[in-house]
């Protein structure tokens, strides 16, 4: 189990658990380009952790390191108190890490329901043949999975589009369906890559509400990348700031907001 002594209490009075994941001196290079330079930070169980930074700061690369898509040349990723060996993304997913993508990656021709069901893939044990004839354990398993998926659909209020092909949905709803698919996997760590990108104010409000609700109801730990400063500062418990592959700030939204390095690098120098 995690060492709970490292937990802390947030400004709004929520108890945050111990360290769930820790990045230790991560460096990631693509040929001659260094995308991430010697970065360390941790993610506590139950918190909403944001990674922010200007374009090209290496945020998405960082998320890909967490999700196991990239293997860093230097440094270690510690997960649940032990170093995590180099893994395939699906192996990481089995360990309880789910994610959404910056450019929606859903199956456009499939219905919302089927898309969300794919999130349950790691919970299905029956073989292809048993599933095809839909008999015995395979059937029970699918019913149980379907029930879980329906709870997620109910939770994210997408009942009315359950049977609609994803390709016919507007952008904001697709984003919500992607979140649903990630949630269906029952992750202990949820990674959101720019969940609000391209949304209008109302859609952003809805999405923020859902992110907070997920964290609140299921106790899911959430790490997110986001450009909208208002959203980040309102949602997250702690923020990592990156610039040119380096970490230039780490702390609560208030601390980060008042950090001169961060202001200069990212939020801009206020005009006197």
């Amino acid at each position: 189990m995690l060492d709970q002594s490292q937990g802390y209490v947030t400004a709004d009075g929520r108890q945050i658990g111990g360290v769930l994941m820790e990045m230790k001196d991560i460096t990631l290079r693509f040929g001659g380009v260094t995308a991430i330079k010697d970065i360390s930070f941790d993610i506590h169980e139950g918190e909403i952790r944001a990674i922010i930074g200007p374009n090209g700061a290496g945020k998405s690369s960082m998320l890909n390191v967490i999700s196991g898509f990239y293997t860093p040349q230097e440094g270690e990723v510690w997960y649940k108190g032990a170093p995590r060996p180099a893994m395939k993304p699906y192996e990481v997913a089995r360990m309880g890490v789910a994610r959404t993508f910056q450019n929606i990656a859903l199956f456009e021709g499939m219905t919302v329901l089927d898309n969300v069901m794919t999130g349950r893939l790691n919970h299905m044990k029956a073989g292809i043949l048993a599933q095809a004839i839909w008999w015995g354990k395979a059937r029970d398993e699918e019913i149980a999975n379907r029930e879980h998926v329906e709870r997620v659909i109910d939770f994210l209020e997408i009942q009315s589009i359950r049977k609609t092909p994803v390709g016919r949905l507007p952008y904001g709803l697709k984003k919500r369906v992607e979140l649903a698919r990630a949630l269906a996997a029952e992750p202990s760590l949820l990674l959101l890559d720019e969940p609000m990108a391209g949304m209008n104010v109302e859609e952003k409000e809805d999405m923020s509400r859902f992110i907070l609700d997920v964290n609140d109801e299921f106790g899911t730990t959430i790490a997110l990348i986001e450009h909208d400063m208002g959203v980040v500062m309102d949602l997250s418990d702690r923020v990592v700031v990156m610039d040119y592959g380096k970490k230039i700030g780490d702390g609560t939204p208030d601390e980060v907001r008042n950090d001169q390095t961060v202001i200069d690098a990212y939020l801009g120098v206020p005009q006197e």
Binding site: E150, R151, I153, D154, R162
Partner: peptide
Amino acid sequence: QAAYREKELGI
């Protein structure tokens, strides 16, 4: 006989 029905979790 059924007095009430409600669709919940798709059923």
